[in-house]
Simulated assay, not measured.
Amino acid sequence: MPEYVARLASPDATAEFGHALGSLLQAGDLVLLHGDLGAGKTTLTRSLAEGLGVRGPITSPTFVLARTHPSLADGPSLVHVDAYRLAGDAAALDDLDLDASLDESVTVIEWGAGMAEGLSADRLEISLTALPDESREVRVVPVGERFESLVSTLPR
């Protein structure tokens, strides 16, 4: 399975990467974001949303757990989930009923590792790491054929 790894030198580079990736996503896609606090998960989601063309503003849904951002055009909506407060409880994630909208939306789940993988056999797993110089390392692992081909088109 091909993996994509890049160093994003600045917030602008992170935004460019997210915008490019967002423009490639389609209804039914699941993206799991991993990384420490402050690694840039919500910032990346914001730029993915811009690439998708959905209504904002995109803020962390930590206290509401999930927000839906409808498309401003004919594309899919974005369901943005922050599973941090669920503390790895897959049953609590299941209570959000994400599978009801999964086929019609792009679903991005922050902190979903270990509990969201069962939502779809195909997904993108993205890890962000903050580096000492304030840049970010992004590691994208595709799971499934669709995402293997998608990763091959990401800017290098």
Rank of each mutant, 00 (worst) to 15 (best):
110 E>H: 03
71 S>H: 03
105 S>Y: 00
31 V>M: 06
80 H>G: 03
11 P>S: 12
119 L>Y: 08
131 L>Y: 06
122 D>L: 04
150 L>K: 09
37 L>D: 08
138 V>Q: 04
134 E>S: 14
138 V>A: 12
112 G>I: 09
30 L>S: 06
28 G>C: 02
147 F>V: 11
81 V>D: 01
12 D>T: 15
65 L>E: 05
23 S>L: 04
32 L>T: 06
150 L>C: 11
142 P>K: 09
73 A>R: 07
24 L>W: 04
143 V>H: 14
109 I>S: 08
65 L>A: 03
24 L>I: 05
37 L>M: 14
78 L>N: 03
87 A>Q: 13
50 E>I: 12
145 E>G: 14
148 E>G: 14
88 G>D: 06
5 V>D: 09
58 I>C: 13
7 R>Q: 09
79 V>S: 05
139 R>N: 06
6 A>T: 11
67 R>K: 02
50 E>N: 10
91 A>G: 05
66 A>M: 15
86 L>A: 07
66 A>D: 04
124 L>C: 10
72 L>W: 03
151 V>D: 07
8 L>I: 00
140 V>I: 15
25 L>A: 11
13 A>Q: 00
45 T>H: 04
49 A>R: 10
115 M>Q: 09
141 V>E: 10
144 G>C: 09
63 F>T: 11
154 L>S: 04
89 D>Y: 00
27 A>F: 03
3 E>C: 12
109 I>M: 06
123 R>K: 10
4 Y>H: 14
98 L>A: 04
147 F>I: 07
97 D>E: 14
89 D>E: 02
62 T>G: 13
34 H>F: 03
53 G>S: 07
72 L>R: 13
73 A>E: 04
